[in-house]
Design a protein around this nucleic acid. Sequence first.
DNA 1: CATTAGTTTCAGAAATTTCTGAAACACGCG
DNA 2: CGCGTGTTTCAGAAATTTCTGAAACTAATG
Lengths: 183, 183
Amino acid sequence: MPTQIQQEFILHFGEMGSRWGINRTVGQIYALLFLSDRPLCADDIVEALHFSRSNVSMGLKELQSWNLVRLRHLPDDRRDFFTTPEDMWEIVRTLIAERKKREIDPTLTKLRELELQAPDGEDSYAITRMAELRELIEAMTGFYDEMNRLETERLVALLKMGSKLSKLAGSAAKVLPMRKTKA
Amino acid sequence: MPTQIQQEFILHFGEMGSRWGINRTVGQIYALLFLSDRPLCADDIVEALHFSRSNVSMGLKELQSWNLVRLRHLPDDRRDFFTTPEDMWEIVRTLIAERKKREIDPTLTKLRELELQAPDGEDSYAITRMAELRELIEAMTGFYDEMNRLETERLVALLKMGSKLSKLAGSAAKVLPMRKTKA
DNA sequence: CATTAGTTTCAGAAATTTCTGAAACACGCG
DNA sequence: CGCGTGTTTCAGAAATTTCTGAAACTAATG
């Protein structure tokens, strides 16, 4: 039974769910698990949120497909229990990785594919535009990969460096002047 | 009249639209503008994509609300013409800023609000969890703000630094050891 | 001030997504 | 095996979102 404050958080996550590409139900289930200090089974969720059993089941499946929940088993109980990771950074890493997979990678693939098909000569503005977009996505995902490789401790340190990074970027810009975008 | 290859790109953007939190129509309109080497008016879009006039009108309004298109006027013509920015990095900056505004900021606000309401003593796990989430979001948005302040040239330089950053993060972690998360 | 060329709004139709209850399925146990 | 306890699937109901055509609106022009 969620407390008042938990309730509010859960409802908020539900509302935001649609903006985040999951749906209301899934958002609420996630929020509930996130706040819970012990693993919950499907029926706990039904009781807490008053969704139908099958809706909860589907929601959990969806969360599993996003790798956002962990499946646990208690001894002598064959029900599936679920938790979210204790480590908040792990959650964020997963979230970003999954969104990249769903929102960026397919487009990158498509752009590369189209580039191969591109008839030469014709249509040059559009084709240049697509190539620029592809390059930009590659630059960003490359950076992401780099950051993602860091252990959490180092990653956090880097995030907190703040203005030091800007200074570094200043000198880097001089040392490695940006090449002109082609075309 | 989009070429074959443009057509494919446009359809892809349409499909991805729903994952990106805009809809199919809006995705396609954006893609068309993105590839076009000249500003287009609403009727150009109707002709190219065969959507109803009002659908295009709404789509353009939506794109304007995202700041993703620029409104232009040609001399002696009172129609509204639209373009996307030439500079790809500007597009990305806008996109990220808008998504942050819609997907992150409301949650940050809500978390702060709930923290004020939190009864002390009770419910400590959930409240700690929310506080941790808030801190994490603050760390990430702080970093984002920092990056966003950079001029494009420097930003690109930084993105391309790749493994140099990891090294820096290594030393930083030693110098500024991460404080334990409270509770 | 009526006409024309354009844009916006809006109520309902169409399409899509989400949610449900009922049935099917899985599996350990006596 | 047949039963109890739990999970999953699925077809259709319900809700939400998107799309349309018609009407309203705006503003420049003769």
